[in-house]
Structure formats: structure tokens, C-alpha cells
Design a binder for these strands. Structure first.
Length: 781
DNA sequence: GCGATCAGCT
DNA sequence: CACAGCTGATCGC
């Protein structure tokens, strides 16, 4: 078997193993300090990357013939040499490999001495790069191949086994290794990035970040499957799998699941006329008048399935069928429910959830204005029943949990409930939220209910509610200039005044074209009276211009709306005064899994990472940012590295609105050639594909791209507690760093405890209203 | 053609 | 995951 090692043409710390005639099956055993990343395995090519300042040793213990391990002459940058520390291999090589000549060797300068000090501080060489060492080494393990820049660290051994399996090992041997390891552990980016995860090897696809995790059946799915087995059927392995159509009772076991649905649907279609009202074009009409008299829920399935189909999501029919979801149940489903029944794809789930809220709104509208609709009696009854139920009983036991139940020692009398859905009219009315016509003319006159978090209890004000413009409100607050908060705001806005910070006002004026007459600037920490309500705003520490707003209405129940915010202790000093009754809280990361470091720590991390990666003068650094946001990160990078940052002219214009000092602005340049640190939209860093496009654009100027993707999500889920991660594909490196402009879970908890409100209204509630209660309860435990 | 909105995607 | 935002399709004017 032949294996060739070559250095990457551009970047020193990538080693490519080629097994020309082998279908690779790989396993690598690495020890605690991960220094080798298996990068791609494709077309018999295995590419491995070493973090900078590390070296690689490779042993060959495969096969017994001399052909086992050959370094072809073309691998000119590799030196084949003997290791300094023979004992390092946990499985000593059995045979000396035939070493091929290395014609390029003499042209390559000797590498510096590699010690624990130089391993981090020396910038003159890429320490992981594949350079020959001029030093000679003891002839103990003749079969080793060292691709290190200097003969030293012995940090990793890899072997090619008889079966073509590449195995490897590292054992701590000798002081050199120890010192090196300690030095590395202490200083290196990679050690810091990876020390927690201890993932010994990453097997990455070429499109690493697009790798798919095939979702295995959740426990819930399994349960659902079990529960959906027909009750008397022998599901314990017996073969009594007879399945009957619930309508015509024909045996349909022989049909596929899809065919069964088709069959059942046909039966429903043919039987429906007998029941009086079903028309294929009006599936909403059919419903079971009295469920007690119609215990067979399946007879109510057809409208559901048709509805699902009408959304173009026929492939989920079986999910609804399996769950025996009837029309009533359907309307009470939350997005969380959809997820739990197995609609795991975001797109379809959102689509269904949106369609469901439209359905519910229709139902509400019809109950509120029955005269406005001309509906069949059946529909009328159906809606009546569903709305009656809404008013009288909870759809789900957890839905109407009192928020205040989660507050130990707080009175619960007469305290507002967390609404199950914005559609719950009572809660909407309570908070002053009303139905808003989304479009006066379009959208078929459909309307949306203003979510509670966009309202200020006890006032007629709206916050970040431009999606829900109504004529009955003329005080519109905007907490910051991010699309998801100003969405719906256009230059034709004519609904009153917009209240925001100076920075936000500038941006709204510049980017959207709202005239200044419509804008009312709120100054930080200054109380003003607006329509009889005292209003004070504070820096929200989110993006430039972001504010939190305290409203003190005449009823004495102060409301604090955080907008989007990142907690800082200074906030608490400002918030002294009247106690907060309702807290509208940015719950973006309201889950214990999101516990990321302070921004300063992440900035420091990025600065050090740049320094560590900067060994190659032809490196382009990219830092992701939003329209506004993350400025602190790249400004700090500029300051520390004393290097200008490139931004495009549009971004510069934006930054000029953000109130940076002249000093700070000097760190920005719109001349690309003046800087090799560029600020780019965050989404351009999202995939390696895009990064490759960027790389191609700069192919003459840069040989290495190092991108920083700053996002709080980095620290979620499986990446729990990891301070970030470093991904690499060839000449492109992407760091994902947990730089967040939202509060972490810990910070939220701290904030809530300090503010101690009576009611919390979450602003982000992606998993449905049920989880809102859970979310809040987590904050208070 | 333009602005606004929405779905889909990252 | 989907922070926040881009892209393209569609609709109404």
C-alpha cells in the first residue's frame, strides 16, 4: 500500500495523506491535547490539519512489505526523519519504511528550535507547518515520519494498520513533550477551544458545516408509535397486524401507509355527503358535532388531512393521522406540539404554525363578529364550540399556568396570566393589545393580534410593533435598529410618533426614510412624560442605540421593557426607583444551555486567535457582523492589534451614525488594501461554500482565510460550555465564538432576581407558549 | 417599475 | 438552534 504525505500548498499546518488505492476506513486515537484534525476524507484523500505551532509525527506499522509507506519524491516539503522521542509510539513500528528522497529539502531553511516557549511566542515560522528539520535525531524508531517544523514535540502518532486502518496514539513521554504540552495548554487558542470538548477527532465532510445529523427517533416518537398501535393488536412481536379501515372496515394491512391514507380519505369523501355538509373545497366545515356521539375520532380526520395537503405538506399527513389529530385538536396545536409529533423541519413547522394561527384568528374573529361572516351552521357551531372552550377551559393544563406561580412569595390574586397565545382575546384586551390589520387592503382583510410583548400594560403604547400598525395607537417605541424589531416600518408610516434613541432615530431616518418630524428622540436616563406616562430609557447593552424602556403609568404599575439586551451590573443602579410590576424580557437565550462568557473574554479570545493565526502574512481575517452589532468586537481587535479594519462604504455610513468617537472611527478604512482584517455580514461566514467564494476573490493576495463568526448560539446544545470552536477546510479556517449581544441564561436569572417583577412577559418564545411558562420557571429556580 | 411582504434559507 | 438578514417570488399600485 502506498501512502503519500504532502503539505498543503498554501497553509503549513495541513497535511494531506493520500492512499491511492485504498478505500479508507479510519480510526485515530489521540490523547488529551487534540492537535490533529481529520479534515476531509474524499476520493482516497485524507486531509488532516494541525493547529499552528504543533508538529505531527507519523508511524507506519502497517503491512510487512517495504511498500507500506512511501513518500513520493513529489512531496518535496516533507522531511522524513527519525523521531526525537522513540518511546512515544504506543505501538512501536515494526518495520523501517523505505524513505524516498526529498529533493526540496535542501532549499528549505532550518526550523527554529521548538520549545515550550517558542511554541507559542515564536512567530517566525508556522510551527505546525511542514518543514524539514535540520537537526538529526537518534536512530531509534526508524520508521517514523515527522512532518513537524522542528523536531520536538512528539505530540501525536498515527499509524497505518494492516487493514488500511490508520491508527495512532500519543503518549506523554519525556520532558520535551510535557513542557510543550503545558505551554500549549496554557497559551494556545486551540487548547482553549478544544480542551473542554476533548473530541479526539473530527471527521468532517467537505461541507463540514452543512453536515447532516440524522435525527434518530426521539423517545417521544417511540412512545407515539407504541401508543398508536391498535389496542388489542399484538404489538409485542406477534404478527396480528391486521389493520382495518375505520370507515368501511376493509382490511388495509396490505397497503402502504400512504395508500391507507388515500383509502381512508376516499372512504371519508364518499361517506361525507351522508353526514350532510362536507365539500371538498370547504374542508373547514366538517366537524363532529358531538364528540361523545362520535368516539371514532378518525371520522374527523379528513378535514385535517385536506388542510395539511392544502398547505402543500402532504408528506406530513401520516403524522396527523398517526396522532389522530382531529379538527379541534388541530387548532389547539402549538409549534411545540408540532415538533413533538415529529414535524422537525423548521420550514414546514413554521408554515403549519402560521396557518394554524390564521385559523385561530379566523375562529376568534367569527366569534367576535358573528354577523360579519356568513357561515354554515356547522361551521358556526364548530367555531362557537371552539371559542367557548377557549374561554372556559384550558386547552392544555400547562398553558394557563400563572406566571406568578413561579414567583415565590408573590401574591397571585388578580395577577395576569401568561397568555397561551396572543390570540387569547382576554389577555390581549388586558394588556391593551388589539387586533391590528396587517394590511389595510391586502391580506384579505386578515388581521393579527399584537403579541403581548409588543404592548405596554396600562398604556396605549406599542413597542417594536410595526408589524401590527393600528390607528388607535399613536405612540410607537423602537428599542433598536434590527430588522426583526422595526419590520413593518416603512417611510409611509403615518401612525403617530416613533420614540427611540438618537442613534436609532438617525438610522431609521437614513435607512428607511422616516422624516425627522415623526421621530422623537429619547435621551438615556432622562424621564419624560408621554401622554401622561413617565418614560425613561436606559442603555440596553445590545447593539448601538439599543434601549430598555421603563414606563410608569398612572396606575402605579411600572413596566420595564428590555427590548433586546445584554445584562450588565450597571443596569441595576439605573433601575432603582419604582418597583417593576411587569417585565417584558428578552428571553432569546433563556435556557441553561446558553451560558456564554462575557464579551470581554470573547474579544480577548479573538484577539489572541488572530495573533496565533497571523504567522502567515498572506492571511485575510474576516469578522462577521450585523447591519449594526458586534462593533465592540472588531473595534477592540483593531485597537489591540493596532491595525485598521476594512469596512465597505455603506457600513461606514452606518457606523457614522453610531456615535463613535473620532479616535475610534480612525480604525476603520474603506480601502481594502489598507487592511487584512475585514468586517463582513455575518451570513457570509455561515458556510464554507461562501467563504470559498471570498477566498477565490482574493486568491492573489491571500493564501489563508481566517473567519470569526460571533454568535451566542455557538455555546448552545451539544457545544455546551465550549468557549468556541475552530473549523478548518483547507485554506479556510472559521472560528465560531460565543460573542453575544443578548443576555446569557445566568445573566437573565440574575437580572430577574434583581428586578423582581410581578409578571414576566417573554419576548422570544420560539417553542410555543407552554415553554414560556417553563422558561420563566427556569429563571426563578 | 417600485415598494411592500412573505417564504425559504443560512 | 436561527441571533438577524439576504434573496427571490409575488402582489398591489
Amino acid at each position: 500500500m502506498h501512502c503519500s504525505l504532502t503539505s498543503h500548498p498554501f497553509i503549513g499546518n495541513v497535511v494531506v495523506f493520500r492512499f491511492p488505492s485504498l478505500s479508507l476506513s479510519l480510526s485515530l486515537f489521540l490523547s488529551s491535547e487534540l492537535v490533529l484534525t481529520l479534515h476531509t476524507v474524499k476520493r482516497n484523500t485524507l486531509s488532516l490539519s494541525l493547529p499552528p505551532r504543533r508538529s505531527l509525527m507519523m508511524w507506519n506499522t502497517a503491512g510487512d512489505d517495504d511498500d507500506d509507506f512511501q513518500i513520493p519524491p513529489s512531496s518535496s516539503q516533507l522531511s522524513i526523519r527519525k523521531p526525537l522521542h522513540p518511546t512515544i509510539s504506543h505501538r512501536p513500528p515494526r518495520k523501517k519504511p523505505r524513505l524516498s528522497p526529498n529533493p526540496g529539502k535542501e532549499n528549505i531553511p532550518p526550523a527554529p528550535e521548538f520549545t515550550s516557549d517558542t511554541c507559542f511566542s515564536s512567530g517566525s515560522h508556522a510551527l505546525g507547518s511542514i518543514l524539514p528539520s535540520s537537526s538529526s535525531t537518534p536512530d531509534c524508531i526508524p520508521s517514523s515520519v515527522d512532518c513537524s517544523s522542528a523536531g520536538d514535540s512528539c505530540s501525536l502518532a498515527a499509524e497505518v494498520g494492516n487493514d488500511g486502518v490508520l491508527v495512532g496514539g500519543e503518549e506523554k513521554k519525556g520532558e520535551c513533550f510535557k513542557a510543550n504540552r503545558e505551554g500549549y495548554s496554557r497559551n494556545s487558542m486551540e487548547a482553549r477551544l478544544l480542551s473542554k470538548s476533548r473530541v479526539s477527532l473530527r471527521l468532517e465532510d467537505e461541507e463540514e458545516d452543512e453536515c447532516c445529523f440524522v435525527e434518530s427517533d426521539s423517545e417521544l416518537d417511540v412512545l407515539i408509535k407504541l401508543c398508536s398501535e391498535p389496542e388489542g393488536s399484538n404489538s409485542g412481536g406477534g404478527k396480528d397486524d391486521s389493520i382495518q379501515c375505520p370507515l368501511c372496515e376493509t382490511d388495509i394491512s396490505g397497503l402502504s401507509e400512504e395508500e391507507r391514507h388515500v383509502h381512508t380519505n376516499n372512504c371519508l369523501d364518499t361517506q361525507a355527503p351522508e353526514q350532510g355538509s362536507l365539500k371538498s373545497s370547504c374542508f373547514i366545515e366538517e366537524s363532529v358535532d358531538d364528540p361523545v356521539q362520535h368516539p371514532e375520532l378518525v371520522s374527523d380526520l379528513s378535514p385535517v388531512l385536506k388542510w395539511v395537503r392544502s398547505l402543500g405538506l402532504a408528506k406530513y399527513e401520516d403524522v396527523f393521522l398517526r396522532e389522530e389529530i382531529d379538527w379541534d385538536t388541530l387548532q389547539s396545536l402549538t409549534e411545540e406540539d408540532l415538533l413533538s409529533i415529529g414535524i422537525t423541519s423548521l420550514g414546514p413547522r413554521k408554515k403549519i404554525a402560521n396557518a394554524l394561527s390564521a385559523l385561530r384568528e379566523e375562529a376568534c374573529a367569527s366569534s367576535a363578529e358573528p354577523q360579519a361572516q356568513s357561515l354554515s351552521n356547522v361551521t358556526e357551531r364548530q367555531r362557537e364550540r371552539s371559542t367557548t372552550r377557549k374561554a372556559s377551559e384550558p386547552r392544555k393544563p400547562t398553558a394557563n399556568k400563572l406566571i406568578t406561580e413561579f414567583f415565590p412569595g408573590q401574591a397571585t390574586d388578580g395577577i395576569r396570566k401568561l397568555p397561551k397565545e396572543p390570540v387569547a382575546e382576554k389577555s390581549a384586551a388586558d394588556s391593551g393589545c388589539r387586533r391590528a390589520a396587517v394590511r389595510r387592503n391586502g391580506n384579505n382583510g386578515k388581521s393579527k393580534v399584537v403579541p403581548q410583548w409588543n404592548c405596554v400594560p396600562g398604556t396605549p403604547f406599542r413597542v417594536d410593533a410595526f408589524k401590527y400598525l393600528t390607528r388607535d395607537c399613536c405612540h410607537w417605541f423602537l428599542t433598536h435598529f434590527h430588522l426583526d424589531h422595526y419590520q413593518g416600518l416603512t417611510k409611509s408610516f403615518s401612525h403617530g410618533k416613533i420614540y427611540c434613541s438618537l442613534i436609532t432615530a438617525k438610522l431609521v431616518n437614513m435607512k428607511i426614510g422616516i422624516p425627522w418630524e415623526r421621530l422623537q428622540v429619547l435621551h438615556l436616563n432622562q424621564k419624560v412624560n408621554i401622554a401622561g406616562v413617565d418614560v425613561t430609557c436606559f442603555d440596553a447593552n445590545h447593539c448601538p442605540g439599543s434601549i430598555m424602556i421603563r414606563f410608569e403609568p398612572a396606575n402605579g404599575k411600572a413596566v420595564l421593557h428590555t427590548g433586546d439586551f445584554r445584562y450588565s451590573e450597571e443596569m441595576l443602579n439605573l433601575l432603582t426607583g419604582s418597583p417593576i410590576s411587569s417585565l417584558v424580557l428578552d428571553t432569546t437565550y433563556c435556557n441553561p444551555q446558553y451560558d456564554f462568557p462575557k464579551q470581554e473574554a470573547v474579544i480577548q479570545f479573538v484577539v489572541e486567535a488572530i495573533q496565533a493565526e497571523a504567522f502567515n502574512p498572506k492571511t485575510l481575517f474576516l469578522i462577521g457582523s450585523y447591519t449594526i452589532g458586534k462593533e465592540r468586537l472588531f473595534l477592540e481587535v483593531a485597537r489591540v492589534l493596532r491595525e485598521k479594519i476594512y469596512i465597505n462604504p455603506a457600513k461606514l455610513k452606518l457606523l457614522e451614525c453610531l456615535g463613535f468617537s473620532k479616535e475610534d472611527m480612525r480604525w476603520f478604512t474603506v480601502k481594502e488594501e489598507e487592511s487584512h482584517i475585514h468586517v463582513v455580514p455575518l451570513w457570509t461566514l455561515a458556510s464554507f461554500k461562501r467563504l470559498k467564494h471570498i477566498a477565490n476573490r482574493y486568491t492573489n493576495r491571500y493564501s489563508l482565510i481566517v473567519a470569526f463568526s460571533p454568535t451566542g448560539w455557538t455555546s448552545g446544545k451539544s457545544k455546551k460550555k465550549s468557549p468556541g470552536r475552530r473549523l478548518q477546510q483547507g485554506t479556510i479556517i472559521r472560528y465560531e465564538v460565543p460573542y453575544s449581544e443578548h443576555s446569557s441564561f445566568t445573566e437573565l436569572k440574575e437580572f430577574v432576581q434583581q428586578v423582581s417583577p410581578e409578571v414576566i412577559i417573554p419576548s422570544v418564545n420560539n417553542d410555543g407558549p407552554d415553554s414560556a411558562a417553563a422558561m420563566v420557571s427556569m429563571l426563578l429556580t
